[in-house]
């Protein structure tokens, strides 16, 4: 099997997620080449051929042009599979490549079981095993589902790709994340509010518990999107990544984007009424309770210790 791995480049830097692609190719037992729109000053550590298109010419986000480069490369290499990270770059580009190749796309693979890809369904409550019916396939990998146990090593053979960098969409620049406010990555104790808090007034009980524990409060995405908590307290892929001594997830179902931001916490407590919530997978202690009743009680008891 011949596999094309699509590495990513952002703001002049290679993203470390390419190691996940290499691990996946190893697990598939395939022979791989890597594709990157980037720059030869920051290259992957990889024993293989890296097809490098210059980001100066092709842009860091230019789906029309990147699609064409990948499709041409798949033809040249007679590849059977194209592998992306399931990231803002990968999930945007993969369907375009799949369409051009007339190939099936399997999104957000979490593992390979008996040779078949497995993907999450319904907020990771269920899993689905998929069989591809086309000769070629395009896949995206869930962030963190694959990965090398050691740092990637090796030195690539660089093959530069030239071509037309034109596309219909114009990328005009990055806007940095809002900064300032609370740096949750330094907090030792974090109590986070999820959708289960129900209404904005209830955020206060989460903040009170955090205060009683001597920590900070955070929130999951839906709570931030509803503007009940400011963005600089968001924990997860698009917010902050935290690793406190104690993380208390209140009314948080545990979407992968949230788990990615907090699963390295030393001790995780989940408070949720839904025992099937995926947060259970990460939790050291799962308290089956309505947070609106439980959290104030717990706060009171901790205050009186």
């Amino acid at each position: 099997m011949k596999i094309v791995l699509v590495a990513e480049y952002r703001d002049g830097k290679l993203l470390g997620s390419y190691g996940e692609l290499i691990d996946f190719a190893d697990k598939m037992g395939g022979e791989s080449v890597m594709f990157l729109v980037g720059n030869d000053t920051d290259l992957p550590k990889y024993d293989g051929v890296v097809y490098l298109a210059d980001a100066e010419n092709f842009g860091e986000y230019n789906p029309d042009a990147h699609k064409k480069l990948i499709v041409d490369l798949v033809g040249k290499e007679q590849a059977d599979m194209v592998v992306f990270c399931h990231s803002s770059y990968g999930w945007d580009l993969a369907p375009r490549v799949a369409f051009a190749l007339k190939a099936a796309q399997v999104s957000e693979i979490v593992e390979i079981a008996d040779g078949l890809p497995v993907t999450p369904v319904c907020n990771a409550k269920l899993r689905r095993t998929v069989k591809v019916k086309t000769p070629q396939s395009v896949v995206t990998l869930q962030s963190g589902a694959f990965g090398l146990t050691e740092e990637p090593a090796g030195s690539p053979v660089i093959e530069k790709i030239e071509g037309n960098g034109e596309g219909r969409i114009e990328f005009t620049g990055y806007e940095e994340a809002e900064s300032g406010g609370v740096d949750l990555s330094k907090a030792q104790i974090i109590v986070s509010a999820g959708r289960g808090v129900g209404k904005p007034e209830n955020v206060e009980m989460i903040a009170n518990l955090a205060k009683a524990l001597g920590g900070e409060y955070g929130a999951s995405r839906p709570v931030v999107d509803s503007e009940w908590v400011e963005h600089n307290r968001q924990v997860g892929t698009t917010g902050q990544t935290v690793s406190p001594k104690l993380y208390v997830a209140c009314g948080i179902s545990g979407a992968i984007q949230h788990l990615a931001g907090m699963k390295k916490s030393e001790f995780i407590v989940a408070v949720n009424t839904d025992r099937d919530a995926p947060i259970a997978e990460a939790a050291d202690v799962f308290v089956v309770a309505d947070l609106k009743e439980f959290v104030p009680l717990l706060t009171e008891k901790i205050q009186s210790l």
Binding site: T129, K131, T134, A280
Partner: peptide, 22 residues
């Protein structure tokens, strides 16, 4: 025509270890 099919849908194995309080 479809290009892929679902072989099966199932509940992921619960990773033990977590204490459940009820």
């Amino acid at each position: 025509e479809p290009r892929q099919e679902t072989v099966k849908v199932y509940f992921p194995e619960k990773k033990g270890g977590g204490l459940v309080l009820e």
